[in-house]
Every structure is written in C-alpha cells, then in structure tokens.
Design a protein around this nucleic acid. Structure first.
Lengths: 137, 137
DNA sequence: TTCACTGCAAATCATTTGCAAGGCC
DNA sequence: GGCCTTGCAAATGATTTGCAGTGAA
C-alpha cells in the first residue's frame, strides 16, 4: 500500500489528505497489527519529526467519525485502530497483549440481529486467549 | 438477590467474603447495568462510608481473576463489570453510553472457533447502535 | 485573509501503586 | 503474631483541551 493509495482512500471519505493524515492512514493500511496511538506515533515521528501525539489522536478520531477506520475496544488498556472495516473478528492474547485478525469465520457471526429496543449499526466479535508464541514460552 | 446469596456465591469461587466484597457482588447481581467502578463506588459509599475506590478496584480485579465476574471492554472510556458469566451479548448505545444485555441469541454465536495459531478461551460479542430512548429524543 | 490543521503544554480522568493501619485466623 | 484486607495519598499513563503558530485555498 503506497502513500498515493492512502491519499486516494482518504479523499473517498472526504478527509483532506494532509501529510500527517496520509502517513497515519498509510501506516494503518500497511501494519495490520491494530496499533495503538503510541505505536503509530513512535513509528512515524522519525519520518515526520514535528509530528505530535495530539495530531495522531485528532487524525484517528477523524477517521472514526468519517468511517474510514474502526476503533477496537478489545484491549482495556489502549484504544486500538484498524483501517480494515470489512467483516472480521479479532483475537487478543491476554499474555502478550497483541491483537490478531481472524478472517474466514462464518458470515452469520457478523449478522446484525433485529431487536425492537435498539437500532444496531455494527458488531464487534472479540476472542480472548493465548497465542502459540506465548504458550511455548 | 440478597446479601447472603452474594456471600454464598463468593464462597463458591473461593473468595473470602468481606463486607466490602459481598456488597460489591450483591450490587453487581442486583444491577445488571454493567456498572463502572465509579457507579459502584458512588452507590455503595453511603452504606459503607469508609469504602475506598481502591477497594472497589481490588475487589473487581479479584472477581475477574477468580472467574466470578467478567470485564467488558465494550466501552472505550471505562471498564465495565458483569456478574453474569453466562452466554449473552451486549449492546452499547453510542448516544447515551448505556450497556444492555442481549439474551436469546443463536448459541452458535458463542462457539469458540478452533484456530491453529491461538488457544481461544472466551468470546465477547458486542453490538453498537442507538437505543429507542435516545432515538426519540 | 480566512479557516482548517498542527503541535506544544497543561489539564483531566481512570487506574495502579506504595504504604501504613486495622482486622481476622 | 502473622497475614490478608483496606484505604488514603501519590504516581502513572492514556486521552483531551486550550491556545497560539502555521500553512494552504
């Protein structure tokens, strides 16, 4: 995923593609690790030395608002972000804290149930456990 | 749900039932609103004037550790707690922030998929949207 | 020129930690 | 007595806010 592709993606969501915003989106697209604000900030500041954490926060909140990214509440410590808004679940390793994608699950898991009391817009499916890497240590 | 029932429930999970712990568990059992630490603290301090928020935190963390309650990560602002550890989903109203239970969903939604890379222990199914009360306002 | 964007510093808020006092076995 | 529990105060750490400077249309 190139800088230009991230740029175009932002435009599709009516987000003015500043250098900082495009860099954050490019990072999200290339690192499907559901990074925290801190991880994004630390990764990008060498390339954009003036970057501030406030801008990373502003940018991600804007992405959420415009629907260009989703916020994951799987981790109680940090908010995590994902530029992939397609149907997939997440696995959180309670030992190392890493979040992994889980694709190829049954589509019915992502169906939005109809409920007379609520209007349901989205679903988050989160699995918890231990990853192989942590188990072998 | 009485104080004595909460007391017995704690014993089943090998948790020494102090006055504070039993009161927190009784509150969780009687208020299926997935309260935050603050809500629990504010509700109980009139009855237990010496209660500290630290104790509420300690108590809830102990419940989680012993499996007597579950932690909900549905809300990115506060951690929420639920003494009902049976299979049910949660609905989070993005307008008012309240969390509601959703029972009677298909049991297959709660099945733990087998995955070669992870050992999956639990699942959280969270729906997001607007509740009727917020929509009518 | 205007207005959106950026980024520093300070503020806020949830949660954790250190530690001393109190209570139960 | 010794250990577990409690609760205050301080520390920590993520996120937000205030505000002034910058830069693009």
């Amino acid at each position: 995923m190139t800088y230009m592709q991230a740029h175009r993606y932002l435009m599709q969501y009516s987000i003015r593609p500043s250098v900082q915003r495009t860099a954050v989106m490019e990072y999200l697209m290339n690192h499907k690790t559901h990074p925290t604000v801190d991880e994004i900030y630390l990764a990008l500041s060498p390339g954009i030395p003036t970057l501030s954490k406030t801008t990373v926060y502003n940018t991600l909140n804007l992405f959420i608002e415009k629907g260009a990214a989703q916020m994951l509440t799987i981790d109680e410590k940090n908010t995590r972000y994902d530029a992939d808004i397609s149907k997939h679940a997440h696995f959180y390793c309670t030992s190392c804290g890493k979040v992994h994608d889980m694709f190829n699950l049954k589509p019915e898991l992502f169906e939005l149930p109809s409920n007379p009391q609520f209007t349901i817009d989205s679903v988050q499916l989160s699995y918890y456990g231990t990853c192989n890497n942590c188990k072998s240590n």
